[in-house]
Amino acid sequence: MITVYHNARCKKSREGLEIVKNTGKEYEVREYLKEPLSEAELKQILDKLSFYPMQLIRTNEKIWKEEYKNKDLSDKELITVMVKNPKLIERPIVETKNKAVVGRPGSKIEDLLQ
């Protein structure tokens, strides 16, 4: 099953979802701002992405700049920050059974789903 971690207000996320729809493959959408990820779920996604937590953070978001930018946070603390502030999670994320990608650019989604 393909899962799209999606923010409907984000143009890139909408574009990524459209790419997934166009494959004709079965998928589900998780609007992670409405249904936040748990720490365990986020860790699993990071593993599939082969990312460190910092690589998944949207550092241009106001909340990051005001509350976290100049702090020396561990990976565990960064995961907690993203769980508490899901707006900080890069998007869209497309996940399959064994792998995941951040769909920027959209060609990464196409490559994953080939």
Rank of each mutant, 00 (worst) to 15 (best):
K34M: 00
G106Y: 09
L56M: 14
R91I: 14
S107L: 15
K76H: 08
R30D: 04
P105K: 02
E110D: 02
P86Y: 12
E77M: 10
D72G: 00
A8P: 14
N60G: 10
V29I: 09
K99W: 06
E26Q: 04
M1Y: 07
L113C: 01
L46Y: 13
Y68A: 01
R58D: 07
P86H: 08
V81G: 01
L46A: 08
N7K: 13
R30P: 04
Q55M: 13
E15T: 14
Y5N: 08
V83P: 07
V94I: 15
N85C: 09
N98F: 15
R104D: 11
K76P: 04
P36M: 11
N85Y: 14
P92T: 15
D47A: 12
S13F: 10
L42K: 04
E66Y: 07
L42G: 06
K76F: 07
S107Q: 15
I2Q: 05
N70I: 06
E35A: 00
E67S: 14
K76M: 02
D47F: 02
E77D: 10
K11L: 05
K25A: 07
P36H: 10
V101D: 04
K25I: 02
E95M: 15
R91Q: 10
N70P: 01
K76E: 14
D72H: 01
K21S: 04
L46F: 08
E35K: 01
E35G: 02
E39C: 12
L17E: 03
D72F: 02
E26A: 06
G103K: 03
K11Y: 06
E77I: 03
E67T: 11
K69I: 05
E110Y: 04
E77H: 06
I79P: 06
K71T: 00
K87N: 04
K43Q: 12
H6L: 08
G16A: 09
N60M: 08
K65Q: 12
V29M: 00
L78K: 13
I45N: 05
L49P: 12
N98M: 04
C10I: 14
E39G: 06
L17N: 06
